[in-house]
Amino acid sequence: MTNLLPSVTLPLTKSYEYYSPVPTIISQNVPDKINEPCVLGVDEAGRGPCLGPMVYAVSYCPLSRHQEFKKLGFMDSKKLTEERRTELSKIILENKDWIGWAVFVISPQDISTSMFKRPVYNLNEMAHDATIKLIRSVLDRNVNLEEIYVDPVGPSQSYKVKLQSHFPGIAITIEPKADSIYPIVSAASICAKVTRDQIVQNWQWTETELDISKEFGSGYPSDPNTVRWMDGNEDNFFGFPTIMRFSWKTISNRMKQTRTIEWSEDEDEEHEPITKKAKQSKQDRLDVLERKRKKALKYNHHLKGLINQQFSLDTCSTL
């Protein structure tokens, strides 16, 4: 696990944030650099996979140096090889005097918990909240943001109105394929993608004495390599380790079909109750068993079937 980004924390058991130091060219109180106007980009990695975290990232720099990212070779991270993405992440680290960045890593456990809540806390809401939290935290570090570029999540116009209500006075652009158009979004894309890849590739099992393959494939349910990993590593009772997003329909439907849990009746129920009170007592016990059967259909062994209703992005720890 050498050469991991400082944004990688293992084992991943809960969501967290990482913020790089504010670049010296922005933070230093020197002539002509006070309140240096800056540009910020937002992008994500891991929205679609059924396993691993979803990572939101921002990158920012002086507005006067925005176009330098193109000269350094930044572009949409999905069009780059893993080796090239790693090289670009090193370039970001080496230029900390003028490039700042941050990530919000949302764990698979918290994704599942949020989507099992009632009402559902869905991926779009998580994405919006993560983006707002990252931008707010950068502003709180006295970075003078004048322009923000974001890849859309949901309808672009309503998302823009939402962001503008939180950050009035900042020019906000929300545009599809922003990571291919705006270099600062490309840099954020690299931070998000490399952070997620390194977390998944170096995943540390929290389950006791678990020793199974980490050949997950891309993590997308349609990926044959991912399907092959699930076929070879699904436990007949517990299902999957906590790297899995149990709230994904692909996973919950699969586990409903593969679970072979049997519930035995209590031995003292062999004789039919006679009195009204005894009949009611038996019915109460049957109701409890029925609730257990229903809960078993969504069995999450890490949480022991219990869904934490208190999770929100605002409660995550900050590094």
Score class of each variant (00 low, 15 high):
Ile170Asp: 15
Ile135Ala: 02
Ile261Val: 13
Glu17Thr: 00
Lys78Gly: 01
Ala188Ile: 01
Val153Glu: 15
Glu147Ile: 06
Met75Trp: 08
Asn202Lys: 09
Ile190Lys: 14
Ala45Arg: 10
Thr113Phe: 08
Ile212Ser: 02
Met54Cys: 08
Ile243Cys: 15
Asp76Glu: 15
Ile91Arg: 14
Thr86Tyr: 15
Phe74Asn: 15
Thr315Ser: 15
Val42His: 13
Asp151Asn: 04
Arg196Val: 01
Gln283Gly: 03
Val227Trp: 02
Asp151Leu: 01
Arg245Ile: 00
Val227Gly: 04
Leu12Asp: 12
Glu146Val: 11
Ile91Val: 10
Gly219His: 02
Ala178Lys: 02
Ile199Met: 10
Pro6Lys: 15
Val105Asp: 10
Leu40Arg: 15
Ala192Ser: 13
Lys90Met: 04
Thr318Met: 14
Leu123Trp: 04
Tyr56Ile: 01
Asp32Gln: 13
Ile181Pro: 01
Asp231Cys: 02
Asp151Thr: 01
Pro62Thr: 13
Lys90Asn: 07
Ile181Asn: 12
Tyr121Asn: 09
Leu5Ile: 07
Gln309Pro: 08
Ser59Glu: 07
Asp211Ser: 12
Thr113Gly: 11
Lys277Phe: 06
Ile174Asp: 14
Val103Glu: 05
Ser137Asn: 12
Gly52Met: 07
Asp43Pro: 01
Tyr159His: 06
Leu93Gln: 05
Val120Trp: 14
Arg254Glu: 13
Lys304Arg: 12
Val58Asn: 08
Tyr220Arg: 06
Ile170Phe: 05
Glu146Tyr: 03
Gly219Phe: 10
Leu123Thr: 13
Ser20Trp: 02
Phe69Ser: 07
Met1Ile: 08
Arg136Glu: 06
Leu4Ile: 08
Gln157Ala: 15
Asp268Phe: 09
Cys38Lys: 04
Pro21Arg: 01
Glu83Arg: 11
Thr258Tyr: 08
Ile148Gly: 05
Gln157Asp: 13
Glu82Arg: 03
Leu303Ser: 11
Ala296Gln: 05
Lys14Tyr: 05
Val194Ile: 10
Lys277Arg: 05
Leu63His: 08
Ser59Pro: 00
Phe74His: 13
Ser77Met: 03
Ser317Trp: 10
Tyr56Leu: 03
Lys282Tyr: 03
Arg65Glu: 08
His301Cys: 15
Leu123Asp: 13
Pro49His: 04
Ser252Ala: 00
Ala130Leu: 12
Gly48Thr: 05
Asp235Cys: 06
Gly52Lys: 12
Ile307Val: 14
Asn236Lys: 11
Ile199Asp: 14
Met255Arg: 14
Thr24Tyr: 08
Gly154Gln: 06
Lys162Met: 14
Thr173Phe: 11
Asn225Thr: 03
Gly305Ile: 01
Phe116His: 12
Leu286Tyr: 03
Phe237Val: 09
His66Glu: 08
Tyr149Gln: 09
Asn122Asp: 02
Thr315Cys: 09
Leu303Glu: 07
Ser247Val: 00
Pro221Arg: 02
Thr113Gln: 12
Leu289Glu: 09
Ile274Trp: 01
Asp235Lys: 11
Thr258Ala: 13
Glu265Asn: 12
